[in-house]
């Protein structure tokens, strides 16, 4: 018997497969392992950010600060490494800690002052973006040997294709997050809080700690995505990852996570990011279309998915009564 809870994720996966197949029929050279790997290479930072966002949304919250935290991380890394001459071995752990702390503070404000996550993380978004411009209003190019080396390393795979170190990091994050979500108490508490915070409290679960940790984790993921983004772009800039928070939310929702909280899968989010990537690839293969068509298709897809989720959750309500 097919477990009903996997329906949204299967639909998402089916969609990805259908799109990839359609692309392969329409364009020569589309059907290759490298096209698939390029999806991962070009979207690794988005995957990492979306994993953090998945936890936040499952817990019933939202994090709008992720794009800005990425920009801030690229900016901090670039300026400390290039202008201050710090070692990447110090800078990278430092920016990860800063990102995590940034999330912790937002989580604490959300929980203890009972303020909507939307507005708190919106403030965080402006704050982080603003700090970028204090550091510099210009692009800081990264020429540090460690960064360039990581950026240029190609890991060869059979068949002459390759992936980057960023992809390894992203896949590791996805696997770790799947474990975290399904095999640890923290993960299950996140689901419980998303299902009913009141019940979670009355069942004696550590609601405060879990909620704050969720935002900490999202902050950490954004910072890690920022590091990966620095490898990818080899620069720090205050305008990096502009509007990325919305792409992230879109990927999470397309991946089958309910915005109302309590339901969702990290694996679904992963596929959600890849779907966005496939759309982009198809449009670049088409050649004549503007890249804004990506937004149009994603917009339509989101509508369809939200309606689909509504139908599913309506069925759930009728089952209940």
């Amino acid at each position: 018997m097919l477990n009903r809870k996997f329906v949204p994720i299967l639909v998402t996966f089916g969609l990805l497969a259908a799109m990839f197949a359609a692309g392969s029929f329409r364009y020569t050279g589309f059907f290759s392992a490298q096209v698939l790997y390029n999806l991962l290479i070009d979207n690794s930072f988005l995957i990492i950010t979306a994993v953090g966002m998945t936890f936040v949304i499952i817990s019933g919250g939202i994090d709008l600060s992720v794009g800005s935290v990425i920009a801030l991380t690229t900016m901090l890394s670039a300026s400390l490494v290039e202008q201050q001459g710090w070692s990447p071995g110090v800078v990278i752990p430092l920016v990860l800690i800063i990102g995590a702390l940034f999330g912790t503070v937002m989580g604490a404000i959300i929980h203890y002052f009972k303020i909507q996550p939307f507005i708190v993380t919106l403030a965080g978004m402006f704050l982080a973006r603003g700090i970028c411009y204090i550091i510099s209003i210009n692009t800081i190019t990264v020429t540090n040997s460690f960064f360039t080396k990581v950026a240029q390393t190609k890991i060869s795979l059979p068949g002459g294709s390759f992936i980057s170190i960023n992809v390894i990091i992203a896949l590791a994050v996805v696997l770790a997050a799947i474990f975290l979500a399904h095999y640890t108490r923290f993960g299950r508490n996140v689901y419980a809080i998303g299902g009913s915070e009141q019940s979670a409290l009355l069942m004696g679960l550590p609601v405060a700690r879990t909620k704050i940790l969720v935002y900490t984790f999202s902050g950490f993921c954004s910072a890690l995505a920022g590091v990966v983004f620095t490898f990818y772009m080899l620069s720090g800039y205050g305008l990096h990852a502009m509007g990325l928070e919305l792409d992230t939310i879109a990927a999470v929702v397309i991946g089958g996570t309910l915005l109302t909280g309590g339901v969702g899968y990290v694996a679904g989010t992963f596929i959600g990011v890849l779907i966005q990537g496939v759309i982009q690839t198809i449009i670049s293969f088409e050649g004549t279309l503007s890249s804004w068509w990506t937004k149009i298709v994603i917009g339509l897809l989101l509508f369809v998915f939200i309606l689909f989720q509504r139908l599913l959750s309506d069925r759930r309500v009728t089952l209940k009564s």
Partner: peptide, 26 residues
């Protein structure tokens, strides 16, 4: 006062799940 999205077993044991090396023994 339980969580409708979790399984029956989880609702009974959440917060006290059987662990082995920090991993929940489903």
């Amino acid at each position: 006062n339980l969580c409708p999205n979790l399984t029956v077993a989880e609702n009974i044991f959440i917060g006290r799940e059987p662990l082995k090396f920090g991993k929940i023994q489903w």
